[in-house]
Structures are given as structure tokens and as C-alpha cells.
Design a protein around this nucleic acid. Structure first.
Length: 970
RNA sequence: GCGCUUGUGGCGAAAUGGUAGACGCGCCAGACUUAGGAUCUGGUGUCUCGCGACGUAGGGGUUCGAGUCCCCUCAAGCGCACCA
């Protein structure tokens, strides 16, 4: 019987959907397993072959786990809010929801063709009110919480206000934007507005005046991970630094927990390391510096407390508030000019250009250890956002300070024995400290004690200085994190609205029972003429406190009716807790019920791209930890194991058009020159320049030739093209590996593959391409091999030239069982290790062997069907039913491995002399090393190698090798 | 600059420290076919007529034995980057 994949696949896909065989519930009899893919953003371009890579890998794992008896949750949904839909809406005037839903339908259609075992009953879309209800709810909970540093836990804000009423700030160590100190009397004397402002310093979701990444072209602020190389990730527009009042999430409060959690999860080292870098923990010392002749004091942060004796100047960040306080009248003008210059520079300029700039403030700081007066500079190489925005400069042991000192002619004092600092600084943290102090009178005594570090190693010196500084109250030991709080508002339309109104200017939460606050209709999706965000265009957008509903904003009276927030939430809001919602997607009363959360716990296997390392994967860990503190989430970490599938790239193809003509020249006829200034190749034909132009992959034949007819048909503008071919009459194209994208015409569509080869072949081939975590270009050429394999496997079950099943009840031979169990072993191991690319060859070999063995045994073939089921569900289902089962193959059991069949009676091993294999011979599989040695030594082939030689040593490893170490002599 | 990852045929890639290149693509030859991008069989790392020798980016080391473990160098990719 012919392998008719079109019929098989469409028939089973329909039946699976009708019978709902992939729907799961909370089943306490079975152990749970939660498999999850990063849900896609449904773009207008549809799926390309890269998207399903991760879905197929996780689907194989999900099906495998199900066959092993687990109750597997494998859901899918859509990250439906996003910029492209909004940009499309601005262009066309069409509501973004319409295009988004159309795209979702298209995605679903494409996904359904590949035969995934998703439970579509649990689908979520981040843009539907029943979903973002819980995004808003979580935000309100964060607003209503603060973080206790000692307990390392979020707590209700009421606990903090009660404390303020009783004791003021006291010495409670609480995560905050800036440290504040006030008494209970002060707190109680403040009005609601002032109290609200102060609480913003502590809330986990708060409004803060912070430096933000402002993108004028997009008209919105962006999170740090949305800015790449100083330009916006979406669109590549310039980004400026701007001080703005924005909603923020106090992600930094969880820095330590985010760091510690990494040790408890199975993620790749590279992604854990990326997150560690992003969190950027650094242990150091804060030291108080007083300004000479003034009351002003400031704090510096250093990780090199051992270098206190080498300080020759101090530096403040230009944005620091201290700049104004410190600057002397004489230097005012120069400082102002410098600040103006710094402000004129964009983020991008600052990143690329590291030339030394700075200005003297006129003031001097006093080094508390040496008593020295050192000049205070202002320079942009010190960042306001890190540490205290002020540093002590030790040019001898910090390359940046060194460059600055050289530029401004400041002294350089080496502090490490043997360090030569005449050409460059000595930054290494190794060596013995000297010059600290140079002489006794160079260090200040506190309580009769002076710091002396001479003779200590640098590490010891750091510890000693920390002790000294803390003991004499000159500063304290401090841990800093690079991780910044996340800016949580966007000036866009297509996002979750904030459930917040402004009660006489005070941000106030809309009552929890009134959620969700639905995104209002607007006429235009652009900012208003007065520069308000798009929601400023919404008419029905005011909160009526008395009637507890959203009303016309014309009614705002600031007594009972107030304006609602115009900002919306960023993309990561909806994607931060969706894995919890899948557990209980239709719950109206809670994000997730207690029962569902307790049963499903967290995601066992999460599959998605590594590009989310510092975005989604940090935010959702933060979000989950917060929900864990609330008791909603049951696990500290949301994703136990993470697999990052590589990106599938496309082959872009180029033709070359001579400038200003319709001549298209074959690539091999061109002169290629590298343009050093433009950093790209330029192409010339008979002295005229030719431009590379993308051509569609469908116009390419034989790997690198242009199919001229298809090319002419592809676009009207090429219809009358003058094609200049090479001598052989072929037109050679040029190719490049690039990201798959519609605009590069290199997209390979999974639908086309399914149409031509079937979903099972597509699934096999995507896994066969290479290791799942590696990026690789898509190459359709190899797919025939997988298709042939399926036809071969199919052929095992059917009689030749007839529709009859050719399976018998005969007992399997030992050979059959050996092949089968070798396959069981290999495939089980491979799936556990996600090396699917090597199990497909194993299938190929096994099927080849069974074919050669003329195996017709039902017992063997039935198990083969089950083994293939995770990879090729359609074929397996068809064969499973053909073999007479009336249940789905998904409910079969994964075959048990029986090592007995793998045992060898004898084994052929290479016999080596001095490490080189000279001949092979048979050994009993259970031979001991002694027996092996004896057999090898007495073998006739061995004689010529042992002739006149002395045996120094023999190494015999059962099932591995026999090696004689010999040397001449007797 | 720091961190992570990767270097194996024409290509995608395999190899618990044990005969490197399984399997697939491509290519070559043959079979069946009255031309097809079908199917099947065999071959295919390099050098050599052959015996054989050499081969896993380069160099060193550990080992009876190294693609694999250790050290150094080089190259590529990704991430972070005046983070004090």
C-alpha cells in the first residue's frame, strides 16, 4: 500500500480535534508533567520553518512523557499585544485587535497542520479582558506590596504604613528607591499626598521619576532590554535619556533571590551566566567622604577598598545631585558648560566614544584614611545609575582612572609591590600591598588605631579595610547590583490599560472587584495633539468612584469622578505569568485556583529562544517570585528546565542589476571589491557598478542558479529583464545566510513542506537538521532522506503491491529483538537528553535492519509504532489502528527496555601493540582481562608482533580493547 | 576589556578516554526502465597503482591509547560593557 500522507494526516488531525484527545485535566492518580513553549507573537508574516522547531521538540517530549504514564500539560497561546499590530493600526486605521485576531487564526491554521498535541481548550491570548484581568490584578498586588530585605520577601504595604505610624522608618531594612529617614511624628503629620509620594519609595510597583530610554520615533519609553546598541530593538530608532515620571517595578529588590535561584534550575550555563552578568552582584565598601571647607558629604562605592592609599582624586557623575552642592563659584561656568555638553550626547554616542572628558568642580574631598585633600572632578565615565554615582579614583590600579589622570596630569601612586605603572595601570587583584601608608604620619588614627595594609595580599587588604572602615564608622560593607528596576509604562495604545485613576493627582487603584478595566475605544491610535499618549483620545475614560464604573471623561469633577491613567503596560506584562494561567485558564475568580496551582506546580520543561535571556526570562522569574510570596505560585522558580532552540536561518539569494539599467548579471562575471569605509562588498560589471537585489528562494534552482522563467514571473519589474548569463549559459546567484524574514525573501513556509512531504516528514527533518540548541540555516535538500525513511518504515507493515497488512503473529527472532531493544535504548536516552538528531539515524538503521531480517512479527512492529509516535504521530496513529487497536496510540505504553536482548555472546575487539590496532579477533563477551590477555597473546596473528619483543605491560578492558605495550628485547 | 559557547569530509553532522567520520544530503558507478527531480544496489576523508602513511583549528601535556581530559595560542559566534 502506498504511503498517502495527505490522506492519513488530514484524517487523523480531524479526528484528534473532534475527540479532543489532547485535553487534560488535573488528574491526581498520575504524576504531572508540564511542557511549555514560549508563546508566539502572531505576526502578519505567519509561521516559517524556524518557529515549529521548538514546538516539535517539546511536542516529542510531551508525547514521550505521556507514553510513559505522565499526565502532560502542553498548552499554547498567543502573546497578542505588541508594536507591529499597533504600527499597522496607525497606518491603516484598522483596530489592532482585528489584525491580531486574523494573524492568530492564520497561525492556528498553520500549527494544526503539523500535528501538535496542544490542549487548545487552555489557549490564552494576552489581549483578552479575561486574561489581562490577572495582569492588572498582579500589578495592583505589587502596588500594594513592599519588600523586606531581611526576610527577603514581599509583604503587604499596610504592614509598612503601620510601622511608620508607630516608629517612623526606624532601622527596618526595606527595599527602596532612595534611603529615607523620618519619625512617626513626621509621618503622621503628612497629608495623603505626601504619604503617597513617600510610599512610592517602597512599593514594588511604583511611580518614579527616573532616567528612561525615550524613543521619539516610537513615542514611548523602552525597557533596558528593548534597547540594543543604543537604538530601539523594534525599528532601530535612536533612543535618548530623559527624566520622566513612569510606572516601575522594583525588580532590583529580588536581585539576590534571582541570583540564588539560578543554582536550583537546569538551564544552560551560558544563559545563567548572562543573567548573572545582568544582575551584576558586586560586593564592595561604601566610604563617606567629606568636602573640605563645607558640610557636604558624599558616599563612594568601591570594590577595591585596599587602594584607599592610592586615591588621588574623586569623580562625580554629571547627573549626580551632588554636582550643584560641590561646585565652587569659580568653576560654575565651566561645570555648567560641561553638563550641557554631556546632555547633548546621545546614549549611542556615549557608548561608542570613550574619549576622556571631565571638569574640575573646584572642591576637594578628604580621604578619611590618609587625611589627604583630593580634587573632585565631574566626568561622564562615572555613571549616575550605578553605586552612589561617585567614586574614589585610584589611577595606579584602574585603567579608566589611569586614562583620566594622565589626561588631566594628576598624580599616580602605585600600591602593589613590583607593579610598573609608567605605561598603564595595574588592574589585577593579585600581589602584595605596599605604600599603604608610605610613612606612619600619612594615616589618620581613629580611636588610636591607624590602617596599615603593607605586606598583606590584596584580598587580605580588602578585608582589613572593610573591618577598619566599619569599626570606625567611616562607611560600611555594601552589596551592589547592576540590575535596574523595570520601567513598566508605555505611551502606546495596544497594551494592558492600568487599573489606576488619579484621585486629586494621587495614583489610586480601581477596586479589585471592578477588574478588568477594559481597553477603551479610540478614534486615532496616535498621540494626541497635546502630546498625551494614545489613550488620551479615549472619550469613555474616567473613573466614577460612586458608581464604580468607567464613564465619559467629560464628567471628570475631581470629587467623585477622576481621570484614568493614560499609559499602558509593556510587552512583558502579559507574558510574565501566562504559564500559571494555562493551569486554570477559565477561572473568573483567581489567576489560578489553589488546586490547579498545587497540582501543576511549575513548568518542568520550557522551550524557547535564548534572545529572551535578559528580558522575559528575568521578568517572569521576578513575577513568579512575587506571586510565590503571595502564595499564589507554588514554586520559587517558574521554569525548572530550559532548552533554548537555535534559530533557523534562511538562505538569502541575490541577483545583480547594473545601476540604472535592466541588465542582470551572473555573479561569476562580476568583479568584487571590498569597500573598507562602507564595510561591504561592491560589485562591478565592465566597469559599471551593480547592486545586489534580493530574489525569492523559489526562483533558485540547482542550489545556486537562477530559474530565469520563474524570476520573470515573480515580479512584474523583472518581466523584461535582460539576463546576462555565464559561458555555460547559467545565471549564478550570490547567497548569504541571514535571519528568515519576509523582506529578505528567504522564508521557507512549513505549509509548503507539509503539502509536499507531509507533517511527519517535516517533524523528522526539523529534528534531524542538527542539535536542537544550535542555530543553522534551513536547507530543504536533505528532506528526501527523511521522506524515504518514512516510506520504508511504512513498507514494513504492508504486503508488496497490495493493500493487505503483512504482519504476522510469529514470534520475533532474537535478531529482531536485538534491533528493537537497541532502538528502545537509544531513543529513550536521546529523548531524555534532547538529542533528537541522533535518534532519527537510529530509526533509519533499525528499519533497515528489520527490513533485511524480513521481520513481520506483530510484537516487534507494534513497539516500533509506539517508539515512532512522538516523532511521527500521524503515521503511528494510522499503523496503530491498522494493527487492530481502537484506542489512540497516545495511550499506549512506552516500550520497556530489556537489556537481555542486547547482550553479546562474543565481541570483536582490536588488538593493539603500543597503541596501534594490528588485528581484530573474537572474544567471549564476558571474558575477564586475564582471559583476554591470554587469548590475544596466543593468537597466531600476535606472533609476528611479539617476535623478539619484551612485553612491558598489557591493558585489557572487557568489551573495549586489548593493548600490549612492548619494547625490543627479551 | 570581561564572560559564555563552538572549531571534525564537499555539506548537515555521529563518536560512555578504546578501529574517527554512524546516519542523511551531495557526488560517482551499476541495475531496472524506451530519459524521470522515481526506485534499488555498491562506492565515496586525504595522499599512494598498491602495501601503507597521514588525518578532528595550531602547539604542548596526562595516558598503553586523546576529537574527547589539562595548559597555551589562533579563529568564529553570542552576551555584557567606562558597573568603580
Amino acid at each position: 500500500m502506498e504511503y498517502n500522507f495527505r490522506d492519513i494526516e488530514s484524517r487523523w488531525q480531524k479526528q484528534w480535534a473532534e475527540e479532543g484527545i489532547y485535553h487534560v485535566g488535573e488528574c491526581n492518580g498520575k504524576p504531572k508533567f508540564y511542557v511549555l513553549n514560549m508563546f508566539p507573537y502572531p505576526s502578519g508574516a505567519g509561521l516559517h520553518v524556524g518557529h515549529p522547531l521548538g514546538y516539535i521538540a517539546s511536542d516529542i517530549y510531551a508525547r514521550y512523557k505521556r507514553l510513559q504514564g505522565f499526565n502532560v500539560l502542553n498548552p499554547m497561546g498567543y502573546d497578542a499585544y505588541g508594536l507591529p499590530a499597533e504600527q499597522h493600526a496607525i497606518k491603516t486605521g484598522q483596530h489592532p485587535e482585528i489584525s491580531t485576531f486574523q494573524n492568530i487564526d492564520h497561525y492556528r491554521e498553520q500549527l494544526d497542520k503539523i500535528g501538535f498535541s496542544f490542549d487548545w481548550n487552555r489557549e490564552v491570548r494576552t489581549c483578552t479582558p479575561d486574561y489581562y484581568h490577572w495582569t492588572q490584578w498582579a500589578f495592583q498586588k505589587m502596588f500594594g506590596s513592599f519588600f523586606c530585605n531581611k526576610k527577603q520577601k514581599a509583604m503587604p504595604i499596610e504592614v509598612l504604613t503601620a510601622h511608620f505610624e508607630q516608629e517612623g522608618t526606624g532601622d527596618w531594612d526595606v527595599a527602596c528607591t532612595e534611603e529615607m529617614h523620618f519619625t512617626a511624628e513626621e509621618w503622621n503629620s503628612w497629608d495623603a499626598r505626601k504619604q503617597s509620594d513617600v510610599l512610592m519609595n517602597y512599593r514594588l510597583a511604583f511611580m518614579g521619576e527616573t532616567m528612561v530610554n525615550w524613543c521619539p520615533q516610537l513615542g514611548t519609553v523602552l525597557a533596558n532590554d528593548e534597547v540594543v546598541n543604543g537604538v530601539s530593538e523594534r525599528g532601530g530608532y535612536p533612543v535618548e535619556q530623559k527624566k520622566m515620571r513612569q510606572w516601575c517595578l522594583r525588580v532590583s529588590a529580588y536581585s539576590q533571590r534571582l541570583l540564588d535561584g539560578l543554582d536550583t534550575i537546569q538551564w544552560s550555563d551560558s544563559i545563567k551566566e548572562t543573567q548573572r552578568n545582568w544582575i551584576g552582584r558586586s560586593e564592595g565598601t561604601e566610604v563617606q567622604i567629606s568636602v573640605a571647607g563645607s558640610d557636604v558629604r558624599f558616599t563612594i562605592f568601591t570594590t577595591r577598598a585596599d587602594t584607599m592609599f592610592g586615591v588621588t582624586f574623586f569623580v562625580l557623575a554629571p547627573e549626580s545631585e551632588l554636582v550643584d552642592q560641590v561646585t565652587t563659584a569659580g568653576q560654575r561656568k565651566e561645570v555648567d558648560e560641561y553638563i550641557k555638553y554631556v546632555k547633548s550626547r546621545t546614549e549611542r554616542e556615549r557608548m561608542i566614544d570613550h574619549t576622556v572628558t571631565g571638569v574640575f568642580s573646584g572642591a576637594y574631598g578628604i580621604n578619611p584614611i590618609t587625611g589627604d585633600k583630593c580634587p573632585i572632578y565631574i566626568a561622564e565615565y562615572v555613571l549616575a545609575g550605578y553605586g552612589t554615582g561617585a567614586i574614589m579614583a585610584v589611577p595606579a590600579h584602574d585603567s579608566r582612572d589611569y586614562a583620566f589622570a594622565k589626561h588631566f596630569g594628576l598624580p599616580i601612586i602605585p600600591l602593589v609591590e613590583g607593579a610598573d605603572v609608567s605605561e598603564e595601570s595595574y588592574d589585577a587583584k593579585e600581589g602584595i600591598v605596599t605604600n599603604s601608608p608610605v610613612s606612619e604620619d600619612k594615616s589618620v588614627k581613629y580611636d588610636g588605631e591607624a590602617l596599615c595594609l603593607n605586606g598583606l595580599s590584596i584580598k587580605e587588604a580588602i578585608q582589613e579595610t572593610k573591618r577598619f572602615v566599619s569599626a570606625h564608622n567611616l562607611g560600611r560593607v555594601k552589596v551592589n547590583y547592576r540590575l535596574r528596576d523595570a520601567i513598566f509604562s508605555r505611551q502606546r495604545y495596544w497594551g494592558e490599560p492600568f487599573p489606576v485613576y488619579y484621585r486629586q493627582g494621587i495614583p489610586t487603584m480601581i477596586p479589585e472587584e471592578c477588574l478588568p478595566v477594559e481597553l477603551p475605544e479610540v478614534e486615532k491610535f496616535l498621540p494626541t495633539e497635546t502630546g498625551e499618549p494614545p489613550l488620551g483620545n479615549a472619550q469613555i475614560w474616567a473613573w466614577d468612584e460612586a458608581n464604580r464604573k468607567v464613564v465619559d471623561k467629560a464628567l471628570v469633577d475631581e470629587k467623585t469622578i477622576f481621570p484614568i491613567e493614560l499609559y499602558t503596560m509593556p510587552g512583558f506584562a502579559g507574558s510574565s505569568a501566562y504559564y500559571l494561567r494555562y493551569m486554570d485558564p477559565k477561572n473568573d475568580h483567581a489567576l489560578v485556583s489553589e488546586e490547579a496551582a498545587s497540582y501543576w506546580q511549575n513548568v518542568d520543561l520550557y522551550v524557547g529562544g535564548s534572545e529572551h535571556a535578559t528580558g522575559h526570562l528575568i521578568y517572569s522569574r521576578f513575577w513568579n517570585k512575587f506571586l510565590f510570596d503571595l502564595g499564589v505560585s507554588k514554586k520559587e522558580e517558574p521554569f525548572q528546565k530550559l532548552i533554548n532552540q537555535g534559530m533557523i536561518q534562511g538562505w538569502s539569494s541575490f541577483v545583480f542589476r547594473v545601476k540604472g539599467t535592466q541588465k542582470y548579471v551572473s555573479f561569476d562575471l562580476l568583479d568584487v571589491q571590498y569597500d573598507d569605509t562602507a564595510k561591504k562588498n561592491r560589485y562591478f560589471f565592465e566597469g559599471m557598478e551593480a547592486d545586489p537585489i534580493y530574489t525569492d528562494i523559489s526562483t533558485v534552482k540547482n542550489g545556486n542558479q537562477l530559474d530565469v522563467e520563474k524570476f520573470r514571473e515573480w515580479m512584474p519589474e523583472f518581466k523584461d529583464a535582460e539576463i546576462i548569463t555565464n559561458e555555460a549559459g547559467n545565471y549564478i546567484i550570490s547567497q548569504a545566510i541571514e535571519k528568515m524574514s519576509k523582506s529578505k525573501y528567504n522564508v521557507v513556509n512549513p505549509d509548503d513542506i507539509c503539502e509536499r512531504y507531509g507533517a511527519d516528514t517535516l517533524r523528522l527533518y526539523e529534528m534531524f537538521l542538527g542539535p536542537i540548541e544550535q542555530s543553522k540555516p534551513w536547507d530543504t535538500n536533505g528532506i528526501d532522506g527523511c521522506f524515504r525513511f518514512l516510506k520504508k518504515a511504512w513498507g514494513l507493515f504492508w504486503a508488496k503491491d497490495s493493500d493487505a497488512l503483512a504482519v504476522s503473529d510469529e514470534e520475533p527472532t532474537r535478531e529482531n529483538l536485538k534491533t528493537l531493544h537497541r532502538l528502545i535504548k537509544k531513543v529513550s536516552e536521546d529523548i531524555e537528553e534532547f538529542s533528537y538528531n541522533t535518534s532519527i539515524p537510529a530509526f533509519m538503521v533499525a528499519v533497515g535492519e528489520l527490513q533485511q531480517q524480513k521481520c513481520r512479527s506483530r510484537k516487534v512492529l507494534e513497539q516500533l509504532v509506539v517508539l515512532m509516535a512522538p516523532f511521527t504521530p500521524h503515521v503511528s496513529e494510522e499503523l496503530w489502528h491498522a494493527l487492530g487497536h481502537d484506542t489512540t496510540v497516545c495511550d499506549a505504553s512506552w516500550p520497556e527496555l530489556c537489556e537481555e536482548y542486547l547482550k553479546e555472546e562474543s565481541v570483536t575487539l582490536g588488538v593493539q601493540f603500543n597503541g596501534k590496532v594490528r588485528f581484530s579477533m573474537e572474544f567471549p563477551a564476558d571474558a575477564t582481562p586475564e582471559q583476554m590477555r591470554e587469548m590475544a597473546e596466543t593468537a597466531p596473528e600476535a606472533a609476528k608482533y611479539l617476535e623478539g619483543m619484551q612485553v612491558v605491560k598489557v591493558v585489557a578492558v572487557p568489551k573495549r580493547i586489548v593493548n600490549f605495550v612492548v619494547k625490543p628485547g627479551k
